[in-house]
Nucleic acid binder design. Structure first.
Lengths: 227, 227
DNA sequence: ATATGACCAGAAAAACAAAATTGGTCATGA
DNA sequence: TCATGACCAATTTTGTTTTTCTGGTCATAT
């Protein structure tokens, strides 16, 4: 019987890499480990990527695309998903669900290992989150209070997202209130504090679609050969 | 001429320790370094504390008291200082101004070094910030929306504080908007989102005085012998 | 009485060599 | 044509020894 699933072999390799790297970190994860986990020979890995760095790069790209797709799906499925508050909550949930992206966002050197020194990791990070332009768009759509400085608001949202990804080292999950409760409060506070009720919610979703598209295109530009 | 300033020698030693430990970290800072910086002999340090750990412990206690005093001074000087939003903003500023407390709050192992393994550092941290009880008090005083879950709100405030202390590793200060701008937005968002306008501002200040007192008393309990 | 700094045992760091592992290649077999 | 895994140079890890350093003490000087 011939292995016909060689088609999605790159995907399987990336799956293995994602699993191992988020668990052992970049340094301790070897190509042999990845190949073993993926059920292929070591050499096969080099049929798709020229180096360990290139593999990791591809992995980051794939996970970023997945993160964007996940975020978009959550927002589209939410009737009130067009408001900045809801979108932001969804983005926190999506980020929470993707360990590799979380590690990248927090510059976790335990996971990123020496990769953090070779490449400039900020290359990835700066495409994250809701930037200044996005806020301005949302203000134009009547969904965000116009008296808030867009740059500062974008920064504040980054701060909170960063806080959520790292707080566990200070307040263990066992002592923290449930995520639902916290998100309820977050939504109540941010909802009143920064959003407007009478805006066009659909415009918000449209803004997100565009923003996601921009992110994806940026990754196309860096990786013209695809996965 | 006799050294008459031997009275404040403990303070000078703690000053030297604070300066060196925040710069070099606990591990790389030696007792000899501290003594030299303080202008005393090494043995003199042991006239006041029985070990390096005891010295560090005393330093943390002093800095915590200073942090509390600083916070209180900022709030008292602010006419609208009784609102939770203002108090919170002041607490962020006070924390920002104290490198050692910042390191303790974020469990920064570069500064805390091996101390983080010996003592349980959470012993200090859990006395930080605005806890659940404080929020409840503020709600009773009509200063905070009563529909917000106190525990979740307290957690959210911790998350934001943690985010501010660590965000610099992701967004360098050079690329970040000015602190004033960000605090303006933070105040606007949190002000609308969680506080009530018609509450008794003086009651808020009183609540803080009590909370600060509780913290200070806790440190008395742990260190009955004083500095 | 009080403060000092030489002194010491134990810990940490540096230096070095030996052994194991790793990223990457490629002759070989399916 | 495609995938494999033995193979290799280079790096990393491990083990060992030597040296330096550090927290803490205490006989001595002030």
């Amino acid at each position: 019987m011939v292995r016909k699933n060689a088609v999605n072999r790159p995907e399987r390799i990336l799956d293995a890499a994602a699993s191992l790297i988020t668990r052992l970190g970049f340094d301790k994860t070897t190509i042999a480990d990845i190949a073993l986990e993926a059920g292929v020979a070591k050499g096969a890995v080099y049929l798709h990527w020229s180096s360990k760095e290139a593999l990791f790069d591809a992995l980051v790209t794939r996970e970023m695309r997945r993160l964007m797709a996940d975020l978009l799906a959550r927002v589209e499925a939410d009737p009130r998903g067009g408001s900045l508050t809801r979108m932001y909550a969804h983005s926190l949930q999506a980020l929470q669900a993707n360990p590799l992206m979380r590690a990248l966002y927090t510059q976790d050197s335990r996971v990123l290992g020496k990769f953090i020194h070779q490449q400039d990791p900020r290359r990835y990070v700066e495409r994250f989150g809701f930037g200044k332009d996005f806020i301005i768009y949302m203000q134009a759509a009547g969904l965000v209070r116009k008296d808030l400085n867009p740059e500062s608001l974008a920064y504040l949202l980054s701060v909170i997202a960063y806080g959520f990804t790292g707080i566990e080292s200070v307040i263990p999950a066992a002592e923290a209130p449930s995520l639902e409760q916290v998100e309820e409060v977050l939504e109540a506070v941010l909802g009143r504090g920064m959003t407007l009720e009478d805006g066009d919610s659909e415009a918000g979703k449209q803004a997100l679609r565009l923003a996601v598209d921009v992110v994806n295109r940026q990754y196309d530009a860096v990786h013209p050969d695809g996965a």
